[in-house]
Computed example of a mutant assay.
Amino acid sequence: MSWDSFHIVFIRCCGIAALLTNTLMFHLICYKSPKNLGAYKYLMLYSAVFEELYAILDIIALPDSITLRSALLTVVSSKKNHMPKELLPVLNVLYWALYGISIALIDIHFLFRYLVVTGIKQRVNWNSVTAIIAISANVKQLFLALVLQTIIPLVLMYLPSGVLLFFCFTDQSFELFGRIMSTTAAVHRVLDPLPNMFVINKYRNALTSYCGTIFCLKSNVTKGVTSGTAASSSLEMK
């Protein structure tokens, strides 16, 4: 398989997966959020919607980054995405604009969550013992999610782009670096909502409930089909 074929399949698969995970995250934030999240919930909603838009742009544009020595190019090709040539510069600009916003959003997300965690800790002394236990559990969950949501962009966004820019500045970059950056950025949009889903108890319990409902429905349907088949076979024997 050539790089172009792999790139098209990979970017589109990551885009669809990112739409699924972020849409699920949007639903969980709207209907299953802890009460003490406050205004932070709206920042999480904005982040989920932004990642969905970014994934849609990836699916449409199929951008590919190419580097050689000190050059860094982002190529949006009509041969790949079958878009009119007049739209290609617009898609290219939108891609880099959203890339820059995503980097800034990671920093804002980190700062805001840190303030939420410290703010909750400062209010603990004014609550009852039961509330203190509940708030402490929420603080631990938010802190763990904060750590994981810092590691994921660090590995998939900051390090690839930082290494790429370093080698471009030193006139030593080669083609592979650009391709690594474009693929890791696509993977980041898939993984970004997962720490919140699996670390925060409210979201994790909701996911477990959804999965249990789906599997129970499937098992009930299977049992119904099996019993129906057994009944029909018994009638045939009679």
Rank of each mutant, 00 (worst) to 15 (best):
R123H: 05
V163T: 06
F143S: 14
I180Q: 05
K121A: 02
E175F: 11
M181F: 02
K140R: 14
N138K: 04
E175Y: 14
K121Q: 08
N138Y: 00
Y114E: 02
N92Y: 07
S102F: 07
T183I: 12
I135D: 15
L105H: 10
P153S: 04
F177H: 10
A97H: 13
V129A: 08
V147K: 03
K140L: 06
V93N: 10
M181C: 12
Y158W: 06
Q149T: 11
F177E: 04
A97S: 08
A185P: 03
Y158D: 11
T150R: 14
G100V: 08
Q172A: 14
L148R: 04
I152W: 04
S161Q: 11
Y95H: 07
L164A: 07
N92L: 15
N138T: 05
G178I: 15
I132S: 01
L146W: 02
N138Q: 12
A185F: 05
A145L: 04
R113V: 07
L91T: 03
A97Q: 12
L159E: 08
S161W: 12
F177P: 01
M157V: 13
L176A: 15
G178K: 00
V117R: 07
I108R: 12
G162P: 12
T130N: 01
F174W: 14
V93P: 03
H109R: 10
M157C: 09
S182K: 04
M181A: 10
A145K: 02
K140D: 12
V155D: 04
L146F: 03
V129F: 08
I135T: 06
K140E: 02
D171F: 12
P153V: 02
Q172S: 14
F167R: 09
L164Y: 03
I135W: 11
L176D: 08
T184D: 04
R123M: 01
A137V: 02
G162H: 00
W126D: 12
T184V: 08
R179G: 09
M157R: 13
L91F: 04
P153Y: 06
T150H: 13
N125E: 05
T118K: 00
T183P: 10
A145N: 03
T130K: 06
V147G: 06
I108K: 05
Y99W: 07
T150M: 07
V116G: 00
Q149R: 05
L146A: 04
M181L: 09
F143V: 00
T184K: 00
G100W: 02
I135F: 07
F166Q: 09
A131R: 07
R113K: 04
I152G: 01
M181P: 13
T150C: 01
F166T: 13
Q149A: 09
E175T: 06
I108Y: 09
L94G: 02
A134S: 13
T184A: 01
G119W: 00
T170G: 01
I132H: 10
T183V: 15
L176G: 13
